[in-house]
Amino acid sequence: MVGRVEKTARLIWPVLSLALVLVVLAALLSLGPMPLQRTATEAFIRLIVVIGLYIFIGNSGILSFGHVSFMAIGAYGSALLTIPPNMKKIVLDLPPFLTALQLPTIPAALIAGTLSTVFAFVIGVPLMRLSGISAAMGTFASLAIVYVVISNWKEVTGGASALIGLPVYTDIWVALIYALLALGLAYAYQESRYGRRLRASRENEVAALATGINVRRERLIAFVFSAFIVGFGGVLHAHFIGVLSSSSFYLDVTFITLAMLVIGGMNSLAGAVTGTIVVSVLGELLRLIEAGFDIGTLHLAAPRGLREVGLSFLMLMILLFRPQGLTSGREIAWPLAPKAG
């Protein structure tokens, strides 16, 4: 009996401990002033995206530069389903039924997430045939295509001008709940047979193929699943900011989310969470320095760009001195018992 309890505890501890950290962080930060809460909310949304990235990159070992496109599709999908019809009529040029359509937020979010998933499936079927650098280039090309389309498709996305009028409902608690869900789903996937097969192919593709694993199929499963999570991250982002512009779904977000994953350690869920927390805290500190502070009558402010310079410098240092990331790809182990044989 005790053995079984301990076994269960050991199994769920890696994800439970991360969830506890997030809940405690959210509880503490929700007591803070509004700007701090907003920063925390943004960090939780980023975390969802990073967890989504981890599901694919971490388990498959294949770099994807394309996941931000799922974020974009989730965000614009949900926007089209929730913006009030009279507003849509002014700024967009949609088919009548879509103009008239206004869904409650949760069904809209689910549909938008599904839309990202379907898109991921469509591009994943061909792209998952690729490995290594080709896969990275292919996913990047898909991001570039989505970006070009979103920036120019005036009728549907508003094109170069920002899309406004989205209901704003993402606060720190909403973001936390979805982040916890993403965390649980990612862990469940990683411990499932699918996750383990994919991890086997990450360690040695040829050996995995030889043991009968359909690597391409396993990759596709992870790709599509991760697209759903990332798409949801996009939805929450859209309803956090309330304004969408295509430029917020391109290289910058790609860089920052990949940085989070790599800094934390891309081979573990603990790494995804650690990286997101470390980069968010550091980014916020640098932002505060950028905004400046007063010493007596003296106002000191660092020039714009310091945050990005600091972050990319940190990322380079970590790559040079700790190429496996802060967690070295390990999960958090159950602390109480000696290691099982």
Binding site: I62, L63, I133, F255, E308, L316, L319
Partner: peptide
Amino acid sequence: PATLLIASFALAYFLQH
């Protein structure tokens, strides 16, 4: 190659900013 790719990405971002 993946690590190298990310490193060059970070370096590019660093120099830009």
